[in-house]
Amino acid sequence: MPKAKVYITLKPSLLDAQGRVLLNALQQLGFETVQEVRVGKYLEIALQPDGDPRAQVEAMCQKLLANPVIEQYRYEIEE
């Protein structure tokens, strides 16, 4: 059964308020090599084996899963 792994993050041009706080927290914990943190969403979507999973997931991202005004997405399909 194909499984889609979808990653959604804020566009690089947008300030990620959560990522900024995590960056500070990590640096305070001594992880001084951390340069930037971006927080996103990770979704796993199980699909029926028939059809074109790539085309379906692309449409899902455009219609619902990501807001193209503020977010970017990428995905992998596992057979």
């Binding site: 804020l10 947008l14 300030l15 308020a17 959560q18 706080v21 807001n67 005004v69 503020i70």
Partner: peptide, 10 residues
């Protein structure tokens, strides 16, 4: 137009 995102202060 546009979108609403997390408050800068969180």
């Amino acid at each position: 137009p546009g979108a609403l995102t997390r408050n800068l202060s969180l």
